[in-house]
Write a protein that binds this DNA or RNA. Structure first.
Lengths: 227, 227
DNA sequence: CCAATAAATGAATGGCATTCATTTATAACC
DNA sequence: GGTTATAAATGAATGCCATTCATTTATTGG
């Protein structure tokens, strides 16, 4: 009988009860897999992240991975949880609410704009098996509550901000000429004029201007809800 | 020599100049492919949308598709452009600006929440080859301009709204218990309390409450920019 | 009638995640 | 200290996928 795949949820190392002996020399574990996956992603991008390549970088057969991970999506969840810990929530409870939200949202977008292939997975996956992601939510929720946010609106506000962040993360990776209408420019004069007009402004990356515009509107709007 | 793949951009049917004869009985064209793809998606979902299945539903060999389409991503772009025409922009120039934006954003989200696998593709693909998508942008841009929006901010505002819409489209498909912290609930008390508190309110779908909250904040914030 | 060519075929390619019967090595238990 | 349960690793196989390409078919303009 093949070894049962462990639950994807991280259990504190060594806490599992056993009925009989087992080998100590575990070549593989979830931390090692996560680290190797991150290296692979940074070296070859998400196209290079295959179960075969991951196994190869760990000096192991592909099938060995499945003793530690239920599926490739499970690997992606491990990566996501690692990244969640890099999102800056340190300003909550220290700086004013609006500044804290600003810091959080910008860093959240910056982290995941390099990892957009994770978004379809994480936007829909239960948070229960991602402890660091949960910790991020806890910090943000506590910050909202301390700032006098009505309790029943906190989750909705976070969900809305997160939706904006995820969408904006894609936008960061859009090519510069994404709005070039090309041959059809004549047929969309208002649009073309607005695109050209924006190009004249040389303040910052267009994607950052749009993110700032939307984020400030959300912060202002949500700020008014505080008691 | 194999037939050169036509540019993914739709050319008005029959407008291509030719130097010599060619067969009339074209079994396949981009419209037929788009329709078949939509049927397949609605019947089997995006997992069922394979080039083989698509060819099968058209009574054709898979390789025949590549005479009309450069790649599978090209098929997805055709589908996207079809869906863009279903987004409701009819209120721009008719109803007040805020009502028009509201109608547009809700219908945009509703259409693409059934087609989230398109989002990673369209968020990053040049708009030049998607005429109906361009038409949507044109209508929205014109609506913003007529409402007195400063020209240099129109595209940024649309990009921000679109980011929010795409993120929210994912959220629609999230399972109800996505925020259940499970075993780790003790460690995230503020978050768990806020999740429970929201669950007490039985007004509407949580995803709709969050979307409304964010959208109204964006509309209010952007509305203040009008001259 | 001929030449050019768009469109379709069917076989092949290389890659992918995942499964499974089997082997290996450990450590708990008597 | 031998026995045994079992976690972990192997390597071969499976079935699916998008895409390519040499070839054939059918059509029409000249």
């Amino acid at each position: 009988m093949p070894a049962p795949t462990p639950a994807p949820s991280a259990s504190p190392a060594g806490s599992v009860r056993r009925r009989a002996g087992r080998p100590t020399a575990a070549v593989l574990d979830q931390d090692g897999i996560t680290t190797a996956a991150l290296q692979l992603i940074s070296a070859k991008g998400y196209d290079g992240l295959t179960m075969a390549a991951l196994a190869r970088s760990l000096g192991v057969a592909p099938s060995a991975l499945y003793n530690h991970v239920a599926s490739k999506d499970d690997v992606l969840l491990l990566v996501e949880d690692h990244l969640a810990a890099m999102v800056d929530v340190s300003a909550f409870g220290v700086e004013p609410w609006d500044a804290a939200v600003r810091r959080w949202a910008w860093s959240y977008r910056d982290v995941f704009s390099e990892h957009t292939p994770l978004i379809p997975v994480i936007a829909v996956l239960p948070v229960a098996n991602a402890p660091k992601t949960l910790a991020m939510y806890e910090a943000v929720t506590a910050g909202f509550r301390e700032a006098g946010f009505p309790e029943e609106k906190i989750i909705s506000a976070i969900v809305a901000l997160e939706a904006f962040v995820f969408g904006a993360a894609y936008d960061v990776n859009a090519p510069e000429d994404i709005f070039d209408a090309g041959r059809l420019a004549d047929q969309v004069p208002n649009f073309t004029a607005a695109v050209d007009r924006l190009a004249l402004e040389r303040h910052a990356r267009p994607t950052d201007v749009a993110f700032s515009l939307g984020l400030e509107a959300l912060i202002t709007g949500f700020g008014a809800l505080r008691g």
